[in-house]
């Protein structure tokens, strides 16, 4: 019970602090694609893979007092920072989550910038398509971002390294 909530708390706990809702969405999505057992379902929205379930779950965790959300004005929009509260820590202590490899992967993902994570998550979203088609797709669905071929190469390389990292850790 509340296992899925505990997994999200665990993810934020191992990441330290997550800045930005969009970033949190991308982090959990990428981790899920790396076969970490998150249950939230993602669909493609205007800005890439997005999970309404995850948004709601994070809202619930804030209302429960397990997560701390700080809203700050940044330029023309608001940005949100998420950290674990003391009671969240206590909850996690009593509802331990077994995802030993998750920490290293999420810390790595958290270090990347939002633009790059948007690209990585989009590449992963289309991973059932051949690479050439994925590249074409990115130029269609992410037209305004104007990703270069080099950036897409970098995204593929990053995904490969993340997979190796999670596999090594699993082994």
């Amino acid at each position: 019970m509340l296992k899925d909530h505990a997994k999200i708390i665990h993810a934020i706990s191992v990441s330290g602090e997550v800045i930005g809702r969009k970033k949190l969405q991308k982090m959990i999505y990428i981790a899920k694609k790396m076969e970490f057992p998150f249950q939230e379902r993602f669909q493609f929205h205007f800005y890439g893979p997005y999970s309404e379930e995850l948004t709601l779950r994070v809202e619930e965790l804030c209302n429960m007092g397990f997560l701390d959300e700080v809203k700050e004005k940044k330029g023309g929009y608001y940005q949100y920072r998420y950290t674990l509260t003391e009671s969240g820590q206590e909850f996690l202590g009593e509802n331990s989550v077994e995802m030993p490899c998750l920490g290293d992967c999420l810390i790595d993902i958290n270090d990347q910038n939002a633009r790059f994570l948007e690209l990585v998550s989009t590449v992963l979203y289309f991973d059932n398509l051949p690479e050439a088609e994925v590249r074409e797709k990115i130029q269609t669905v992410k037209k305004s971002q104007k990703y270069t071929d080099e950036e897409i190469d970098e995204a593929y390389a990053y995904i490969a390294s993340l997979k190796t990292k999670s596999r090594q850790l699993l082994a």
Binding site: G20, R21, K22, Q25, F46, Y47, T55, Y77, Q79, Y80
Partner: peptide, 11 residues
Amino acid sequence: DFYRPGEEEER
């Protein structure tokens, strides 16, 4: 879901 104003370009 509820209506969300789309802060941070979520939706």
